[in-house]
Nucleic acid binder design. Structure first.
Lengths: 337, 337
DNA sequence: TTGTACGCGTTATCAT
DNA sequence: ATGATAACGCGTACAA
């Protein structure tokens, strides 16, 4: 039987063994308050001899904290999220926190937050997705430290860690334009994320600058899937004959590459394609994808650091932290002509 | 300030409001013991009015449990693990457990388990990797419910959820052989996992059955990376001129496909390739990969179910659960000739 | 069927 | 510098 009465030793056992009071043991444990060198030595030795380990459950209960960070994302199978998750888990562990993850439909997000707040189950939360109009999140901003990673609610005062999506897409489009392309198609997703909105706006602004109408050059699909990228590209190529296609995600770009192949177009000779994110599979087959790299691991790491700051300050700092993106020129783009 | 004295209501507030004792409220909450219909109604109404939510921290402390499941894996960026993780998190949430994840080097695994056991931080653990000789795990088997998912320690009594790796690779090799191939190369990884061992053994046994020596046909690389698959395939093709290559992972197979392309070989016309796992990117570009599919989500789901059984039984059940694999015939394999 | 009272292990507030 | 002791919120013997 697991969990049989193992007569676990507690702080008072240690106190007796060390010949001091529980208060002194606690002070040694928490390194606060005054305690003589002799007493400390005696306590440490008693702890060692007895193999005492503090009961975290009791401590958390007493201190009204959990040392747990909640992570909410739609899923973790998407490599973009899973890399952020790596940054989060490793950083939080180093800082003495455990990472608790929740994935699932947006509809559940509010329930989960509520559960955390009232149940004292997490000391803070990192939100990996939210729609521009998820203003309900603000309701929790003064109840629980929250950090938004990658996405944010419009006009929110909640801290936000992300790249500059507008500037990143500008770099993408400018690069393509520098290659001589003018008829540049754009494949993006129909959702309410701020990143999506900024990327599209950036594309449109840069096209306007070179005086090319985007009419008929934009395709908005329902989700970030390979198949949707493929179908959108087929349609786009047939209708608009672009010489280049910029995508707001790598997976969409991979779909576009497949589409081009099926239609007898060679990438990049007949069609240049550029992605966004730089997830693992951009270099898993030729042509390697030209794309904009996001610092996923750092995004996760920074989010945790910011969240812990908020937890310690007992308030949301409403910092906006922007990390650097990077254009990765590889094999799917080339000079026009 | 977050966490300001919000004067959270507790069980005794409810008791007062309902005009009963805390014991009665507790009995209603936990649905045990006798309680009159009138009292129950009164309590529920009071709970509703006050918006009372039990303090999980206090409850866990009192009951010496955590309602947390620990998940240990080398990483979660690998899609194979991330899909298992999905199954785990969704299932555990449904069952009222939170999933806490730890990734990192094998060297830390023992520390983490120890921490969980003594600190009462998790009610059970799911181990996603372990080496054949990680017998130290057995030390914890009678201290904490543990389930091994995908991999297992040799001769262990700890429950184990996985596919039949031997039979799965047998299906892979037999299928390739049925296509007329005899010089079948094999790319695998140098590690101490039971899955690796079984897959290799299966390959060798099936080759022996058709009387073909495997000498020079096997390559063992250091890790499951695309680049290692690519390099191994280049070497294998140059040295041994196989007509088909079986890989013990999809990523290795993708590397092999890239290698073939670089060497002017067309897949599957000049070389058939088969993978293992069926992760997301097997269908992200042509030729789509023929492979053996593992039921990742189910693997995670079943692991949680088994673990909860163990937790409730307060002992490790030492069940061995085998889930079904499936051969997925796609575009990287064809009749020899 | 219900209520009283104690204990879970810790931290923190007071005296001393 | 140290010790006694009161919380923290809940579950549950035990008594009624």
């Amino acid at each position: 039987m697991i969990g049989e009465k193992v007569s676990k030793i507690n702080i008072s056992d240690v106190a007796v063994e060390a010949g001091v009071s529980v208060a002194t043991v606690s002070r040694v444990l928490n390194q606060n308050g005054y305690v003589s060198e002799a007493a400390e030595k005696s306590v440490r030795s008693a702890i060692e001899r007895l193999g005492y380990v503090p009961n975290i459950s009791a401590r958390n209960f007493r201190k009204q904290e959990s040392r747990v960070i909640l992570i909410v994302a739609p899923n973790f199978t998407n490599p973009y999220y899973s890399h952020i998750l790596s940054g989060i888990t490793e950083t939080s562990r180093t800082a003495g926190y455990s990472a608790m993850i929740f994935s699932g439909k947006t509809s559940n997000k509010e329930d989960i937050l509520a559960e955390m707040v009232v149940g004292n189950k997490a000391d803070g939360a990192i939100l990996l997705t939210c729609n521009l109009d998820d203003t309900w999140i603000m309701k929790y901003a003064d109840k629980l430290p929250i950090v938004q990673c990658s996405e944010a609610v419009e006009n929110s005062t909640i801290p936000y860690i992300a790249i500059d999506n507008y500037a990143a897409m500008k770099d993408s489009i400018n690069y393509i334009q520098s290659l001589g392309h003018k008829r540049i198609g754009f494949i993006t997703v129909k959702n309410l994320w701020i990143s999506t909105k900024l990327r599209k706006q950036s594309y449109m602004d840069e096209m306007k600058k070179i005086g090319v109408s985007t009419k008929g050059l934009i395709r908005e699909v329902n989700d970030y899937s390979f198949e949707n990228g493929r179908l959108a590209a087929i349609d786009l190529i047939m209708q608009a004959h672009p010489t280049a296609i910029a995508c707001s995600s790598d997976v969409l770009a991979l779909g576009a590459i497949a589409a081009a192949g099926e239609m007898g177009l060679s990438v990049p000779k007949d069609l240049s394609i550029i992605g966004f994110d730089d997830v693992d599979y951009t270099k898993m087959f030729h042509p390697y994808l030209t794309t904009i790299a996001q610092p996923c691991y750092e995004l996760g790491k920074t989010s945790v650091e910011e969240l812990i700051k908020c937890i310690q300050a007992k308030k949301n700092l409403s910092d906006k932290i922007v990390l650097n993106h990077k254009l990765k020129i590889r094999e799917t783009t080339m000079l026009l002509g």
